[in-house]
Design a protein around this nucleic acid. Sequence first.
DNA 1: ACATCCGTAGTAAACGTTTGCCGTGACCTC
DNA 2: GAGGTCACGGCAAACGTTTACTACGGATGT
Lengths: 375, 375
Amino acid sequence: MTDNGKSERPTPRTGRSGRRKRGEGQLTARERPSTIRDVAAKAGVSVATVSRTLAGNYPVSEEARARVMAAVESLHYVINVHAKALSGRVAGPVALVIKDITGPSLAHVAAGVEQEAADRGRLSLVCATHDDPAREDALVQLMREQHAAAVLLVGSVVPDEAYGRRMIGYAQALDAAGSRLVLVGRPAPAPDMPVTVVDYDNRGGAFQAVSHLLASGHRRVLFLGGEAGLSSGDERRAGYRDALRAHGAEHIEELDTTGTYTRASGYVRTRDALRAGLEFGAVFAASDMVALGALAAIREAGLDVPGEVSVVGFDDVPFATDLTPPLTTVRVPYEELGRTAVRLALGRADSPAGDDHVVLGTQLIIRQSVRRVTW
Amino acid sequence: MTDNGKSERPTPRTGRSGRRKRGEGQLTARERPSTIRDVAAKAGVSVATVSRTLAGNYPVSEEARARVMAAVESLHYVINVHAKALSGRVAGPVALVIKDITGPSLAHVAAGVEQEAADRGRLSLVCATHDDPAREDALVQLMREQHAAAVLLVGSVVPDEAYGRRMIGYAQALDAAGSRLVLVGRPAPAPDMPVTVVDYDNRGGAFQAVSHLLASGHRRVLFLGGEAGLSSGDERRAGYRDALRAHGAEHIEELDTTGTYTRASGYVRTRDALRAGLEFGAVFAASDMVALGALAAIREAGLDVPGEVSVVGFDDVPFATDLTPPLTTVRVPYEELGRTAVRLALGRADSPAGDDHVVLGTQLIIRQSVRRVTW
DNA sequence: ACATCCGTAGTAAACGTTTGCCGTGACCTC
DNA sequence: GAGGTCACGGCAAACGTTTACTACGGATGT
């Protein structure tokens, strides 16, 4: 465009001396944090020497080092990450994007993530989406701005067309920025995408749970499944049916129910099944929260657990062992899930050919909510 | 010191054209994320125009705006927070420093913090200390580097001399950096420090709980207290004694016990009290986890709750309502605690004279673990 | 016809680091 | 004693933004 002013431009000044004084004309009265230049001035050395002393990657004389350290102490100097990030490399944070931190299992994922990230010298950013895809979009964008080393999206989803497109978009955008998308407990959108997937064996876990019930002599198992379409829900349902088939038990349509992963849903479905006179000697709840509701409904109906009805849950929430009776359930390694996600995502820097799809096993924890029946 | 080289220095170049080409001589083959200069070049405008278009704080012609937006789209440009933070102001994150995110109550604090921070456009950093003061020191330092707008230290402590000194150090260091220390559920180290304290009424909550028991006709209440010296433990114990005094009940030394906030401790203390033949018709557990242990021990002894022994907890963990019987307990507004902490810390920017010490109330939640007795 | 003002655009300094490059003495080596 | 190596230290460019200045063309006022 117009190139005016070039000739009238004031002569370029070199060095710092010509700079406008800091704070001049600013409104804030707040004390400005000290910079590396303040330290250098106080120690009587150059900024380069201060930087090198603190980084410890270049020889500095004992005397200079001592002076710098003293200045750092007395000024309470701390480095400015933003400036550091702009020039030398800084390890970006790990971002955990989750529906809601409050859930007992999600809190454990968060703990695993934080721990592994901290072990590797990374900070953890955690954000809640409250299940809002728009918020998820915004957060991925934000994390890109933040130069997050990895973005972990946690929690089951409905893997439809739109979901796939969104994940592909995220994966490519993050990859282009040198970051990594990690899907935890959700399916991969498509093959050959720059995504890391860390999942657990929903289907296998459900298979174990139901097999345990069937092996204990039960034949009619009420399934309190999760939402249709939701990835984990569908998988657990498949495991339920697998087990029925494997043990030669009949699949009864009315016993194969669908609902949300809430206590209320478990309660209502169990109560209605009982009221409707459905026959079943066992309940497999697709989550421990659902099992809680089932337990309440069964108890309310005057039935004993496990005397008259056996119950198995899924998740192994911390208090499962404190229920009455202690709940037999499928343990999901939530903390390990979080740790693995971070390990895989950050490990790529060393070995770009590393795993990018792992499925962690689940384990049936046998407590006292299942009774063996004989015919 | 030596001022050599000044005369031989190459003539200063002006403008960007003279800069060393980017990436030249670098090893990484990774695609470099696009910058505002790339956008400017592609749109055929100056970087200033791009910046202004995106910030929207300066008039830009419709044509230029359109060209800029198109360039942003096609380059998948995202701003670089570090650069932005270095010049214009950027809202610093909120840092949550916590013993362990896994605890059911702490997870709720975290949720409250995240929500309030997000509502105010801040990111949340969460870090676990695992009760290590050295780690806490390191984290506060790290947060200073990160320019966190507020640093929240959450969870009960032993308020000794060393604690006070550490907190005062944190408070001053953070204050000097324009940040704010917030103590959540811990006592203030000293008056007139730049600290915000958000606590809840441990003493009052315990008073309510024990009063409820005494009002129900109980006279001998086993207190499963927290660790001696721990701030919340001492407060709850004081509330227990207050209630005894207020209701004219005798304080019996053997019934006033001390231990940790764990299920195991509650179990052992209750079992031992039972074995020792101590007489008590009610138990006040200083936390729901402790109550869990007490419940188990009582049940194991063949006693009925609340038929033979009444139990009251503290915290109102989510599953308290799912125990058998549903647990009467003291609800602590954990989520509100987190939200308030953020609100107060960030609110100071607007009104520096705002509150800096609030105590949230607790509420007795009456369920079914307490029985009224008559004499 | 000329001075003003407004809307829009570009230039470059500044933010606080890191680090490549260069310089200087001290100490070695034939 | 000339040349070389080494340990240490300073200068200034570069990182990617924002924004204070300056500039300019056209509309408006007199």
